[in-house]
């Protein structure tokens, strides 16, 4: 199988590291060759962050380049659009509808695009939008947005539901397993 490419994008501090940890764990358990790449350091301070997850029979490059991503999982609305160039022509975007203003918008030097997801859809891209913040809060923690989005992604990947659950058990602290399983289920169902 040629490598499948998933990008996880968002705002530094939103919890993309746990999402990629979960995904990595799951894919290794499924017997794939896996590479996960992310940048630590300065960009984690509220900047735009991106994580690359690649899996298949053999994976060389740790990064995903223009036109290569099968999926972009975005923790924030405009971050999905920022990385659109990396998406394959027939790729899918899974996006949390949450809006987080970047500093240029806060100080009024730039505007937050109004209807960006419709524009993305008008280009023929499949957009699967979800209010992950509300669902995560419903599951018991606003911080579980990341796992809600993983639940959404799970519908597109041919990996049994119980394998995801056991990967969650391995990746999160015991006290948070139930909340995260619930968040995952809500993402999967909505």
């Amino acid at each position: 199988m040629s490598a499948k490419n998933i990008m996880i994008v968002g705002v530094g501090g939103q919890g993309s590291l746990l999402a990629s940890k979960l995904l990595g764990r799951l894919l290794v358990d499924e017997g794939f060759d896996v590479k996960v790449s992310e940048v630590h350091g300065m960009s984690q301070r509220g900047g735009s962050v991106v994580t690359y997850v690649r899996f298949g029979d053999k994976v060389y490059s740790p990064i995903i380049d223009e036109g290569e991503a099968d999926f972009i999982v975005s923790f924030e609305k405009i971050e999905a659009a920022r990385y659109i160039k990396d998406l394959r022509k027939d790729g899918t975007i899974i996006v949390n509808t949450q809006q987080i203003d970047p500093m240029p918008v806060i100080i009024g030097s730039e505007e937050y695009p109004k209807d960006i997801l419709s524009e993305v859809e008008s280009k023929g891209v499949k957009v699967d939008a979800i209010d992950a913040l509300t669902l995560a809060t419903q599951a018991g923690s606003a911080k579980a947005c990341n796992i809600v989005l993983m639940g959404k992604l799970a519908k597109y990947l041919d990996i049994p539901y119980d394998k995801w659950e056991s990967a969650i058990e391995k990746c999160v602290k015991p006290a948070f397993i139930d909340i995260n399983k619930k968040a995952f289920a809500l993402g999967y169902e909505n």
Binding site: S48, I78, A81, K85, E110, E119
Partner: peptide
């Protein structure tokens, strides 16, 4: 590789 591009400018999000 074929890519998709948008007309709308996406505001930058520098670290802060």
């Amino acid at each position: 590789k074929e890519t998709v591009s948008l007309d709308t400018k996406i505001p930058v999000r520098p670290p802060m």
